[in-house]
Simulated assay, not measured.
Amino acid sequence: MTTATQTQCACESCHCPVSETEAVQKDGKTYCSEACAQGHPDGKGCGHAGCDCG
């Protein structure tokens, strides 16, 4: 059984853990979603329950 490594989303206001297998990579940083990776161009939130980052 292989366990995926998790890290914190690189978005400063986001508190979501990120699995390496589901991460969005941009500019050498790891994000939990495209919204975080793109700087929240459509407003707040990454789409994950309970997180209001951005």
Rank of each mutant, 00 (worst) to 15 (best):
Q38D: 15
S19L: 02
Q38F: 14
A35K: 13
P17D: 06
V18N: 04
D27Y: 05
E12Y: 00
C36M: 08
C32V: 03
S19E: 02
Q25W: 11
T30W: 03
K26P: 06
E12K: 08
H15D: 13
G28W: 02
H40T: 15
H40W: 15
D27M: 08
C32T: 02
V24K: 10
E34C: 05
G39V: 11
E12D: 09
S19A: 04
T21P: 00
H40F: 15
Q38W: 12
V24M: 03
T30H: 05
H40S: 15
D27V: 08
S33P: 12
A10P: 01
A23H: 02
Q25M: 14
S13L: 12
G28R: 10
V24C: 06
Y31K: 06
G39S: 13
A37G: 10
T21K: 10
E34I: 10
E12T: 09
E20A: 06
H40M: 15
C16R: 14
D27L: 06
T30M: 07
V18Q: 01
Q38L: 15
K29F: 04
A37C: 11
P17C: 01
V24W: 03
K29P: 11
E20V: 04
C16E: 11
S13D: 14
T30F: 05
G39W: 09
C32A: 03
H40R: 15
H40G: 15
V18D: 00
S33E: 10
E20G: 08
E12S: 10
C14W: 03
Q25V: 14
Q38K: 15
P17L: 05
S33D: 08
T21V: 08
C32I: 02
S33V: 13
Q25K: 14
T30V: 13
C9P: 02
A23Q: 09
C9Q: 00
C32N: 02
E34T: 13
